Amino acid sequence: MMADIMDFIRPTNAFELAAFAKNHHDTYQFIEPIGTELSGKSILITGASKGIGRATAVRCAKAGCARIAVAARSSLEGVIKEIKDEAAKLLARISKLLLGGKLDILVNNAGYLPEFKTVIESDPTEWWKAWEVNVKGTFLCCHYFLPFVLNSKTKTVINLSSIGAHTLSYGASSYQTSRFANVRLNEFLAREYEDDELIAISIHPGGIKTDMAANFPEMLHFSLADEPTLPADTIIWLAKERRNWLNGRFVWSNWDLEEVESKQDLIVENDLFKFRMTG
């Protein structure tokens, strides 16, 4: 059975990537917010009505974020209430509007996962929708909001990608190539705005059983074992200070970030976690 699964997903070097540090499936003490991590900062989170985006918005309130803007195609009423409730516990001041002409953190979380089908079997419109949401959507948010991010001191963009960017799963050409493109686009952001000191990081959020995962093949549902607080708190940890040593790189949310932090010299010296061909 496992051999069939491995043949289906064709993980290339994904497992070696996962093994860079010990793994977690939920938040843990090193990254769990205590209420001051994002104090005074502003953040915009796309795809925030449910799943990872919703969890991130609520955890940002727990981290003391001063201004939280949330965007989604579906209703935000519930998540806004959760944000306000969490903020009230910390006496944090929460607003739905970004003020002062600056944005500290942009989180491009909105995503789309089509049903797994081969290139011939795929509906072209459905196949392209993953690129419209995952790539064009990320581009548009960067296009319009980067001027505000660059006007801040934190200057951080976090782009959701996937381990799918590193695998060749049967029928996943739409989703996995779009997530591959997310990582490369992230590298371009770091490169084009290096003189402006932008920090751009792409992340794999883990295996989260969200609504988006409904199109995930049944045989792979066993891998959806992580809690949404894991990527949410990972995002907060990444954004609470400027992580120059991770700029332009891909981060696996399951990694133990205390261990990863101890290896930052190794990461920089070997220019790890970027797409490269070796010969």
Rank of each mutant, 00 (worst) to 15 (best):
A66H: 11
S169Q: 11
G206H: 07
Y112R: 07
A69M: 04
D195A: 04
V183F: 00
L17H: 06
A87G: 15
V251Q: 05
T138I: 09
S223C: 05
G53C: 14
L150Q: 08
L99G: 09
R243L: 05
H143S: 12
L140R: 12
T27L: 02
L246I: 10
C60A: 13
M212E: 12
V119M: 14
D7W: 07
G207R: 08
L272R: 11
G64Y: 06
P231D: 00
T278G: 12
K84S: 13
D226Y: 00
S95Y: 12
A88W: 10
K240L: 01
E227G: 08
A232F: 00
W237T: 05
I120M: 03
K209G: 11
S152G: 11
M277E: 15
L168P: 08
R67E: 10
L97F: 14
A213G: 15
S161C: 02
H24W: 07
K102H: 09
T167Q: 11
T229F: 02
Y144H: 13
K81A: 14
R93S: 10
T12S: 07
V107L: 07
F188C: 06
R54A: 11
A88F: 11
A55M: 12
W237I: 07
N254P: 10
E241V: 10
T229L: 12
L220C: 08
A66W: 03
E32S: 13
E37Y: 12
G248W: 03
K81F: 08
E132K: 14
N159Y: 01
F145Q: 14
F222H: 06
S202F: 01
G51C: 09
A57I: 13
L17E: 05
A214P: 03
E269L: 02
I203L: 08
L238H: 00
L140W: 13
A19E: 02
G111L: 06
E227I: 03
I201S: 10
I235N: 03
